[in-house]
Amino acid sequence: MRDSPLATLARAYKELRLPVVPDGKGRYGRADLVIWLPGGADIVVKIDSAPNPASAQKLAFARDAGAFPLWVRFGKGDIEKIDGVMVLDVRDTVRGVCEAGA
């Protein structure tokens, strides 16, 4: 991306509020990172250490709005499959780093 002509136009936002209220919540949901690309699909990232149904709802909203949703998972628990949502599973990598440092 750094060498792309779009690099100077791209914008990254952390903890960006999304116009979706997950089930059981009283406020708008937040994305951990949103990368806005002019003329392309936005990238919406959620990072979770455990299964989180609210994250799944936020990512489905982002997908339905035309963004590229990415769920980064570390820690424990199952990884839910959601149509149109890419999951990056770094659980084994995180576990290996933690064990090497112990």
Rank of each mutant, 00 (worst) to 15 (best):
R2Y: 12
D3A: 15
P5G: 11
T8C: 02
L9K: 15
L9W: 13
L9S: 14
L9F: 11
A10W: 12
R11I: 11
A12G: 15
A12P: 13
Y13H: 14
Y13P: 06
E15Q: 11
L16G: 09
L16T: 12
R17D: 13
V21I: 05
G24V: 05
K25Y: 00
K25P: 04
K25I: 02
K25T: 03
G26T: 10
G26M: 06
G26P: 07
R27F: 04
R27G: 08
G29H: 07
R30Q: 11
R30N: 12
L33G: 10
L33C: 15
V34A: 13
V34G: 05
I35E: 13
I35P: 10
I35C: 13
W36N: 10
L37R: 15
P38C: 13
P38F: 09
G39T: 11
G39E: 14
G40R: 14
A41M: 12
V45N: 03
V45L: 12
K46S: 10
K46L: 08
K46T: 06
K46C: 05
D48N: 07
S49W: 03
A50H: 02
P51W: 00
P51R: 00
P51H: 00
N52V: 06
P53Y: 02
S55G: 08
S55P: 02
A56F: 05
A56L: 01
A56K: 05
A56M: 02
Q57L: 06
L59S: 07
A60E: 07
A60Y: 07
A62I: 07
R63I: 01
R63W: 06
D64K: 04
D64L: 04
A65W: 11
F68W: 01
P69A: 13
L70R: 01
L70S: 04
W71K: 10
V72T: 02
V72C: 09
V72S: 08
V72M: 06
F74L: 08
F74R: 02
G75E: 01
G75F: 02
K76N: 11
D78M: 01
I79A: 07
K81I: 09
K81D: 13
I82T: 10
D83P: 11
G84D: 11
M86C: 05
M86F: 01
V87G: 07
V87Q: 04
D89F: 14
D89Q: 14
D92T: 12
T93N: 06
V94W: 08
R95N: 03
R95S: 10
G96N: 09
G96K: 11
V97A: 06
E99A: 14
E99G: 00
E99Y: 09
E99R: 12
A100Y: 12
A100K: 15
G101N: 12
A102N: 14
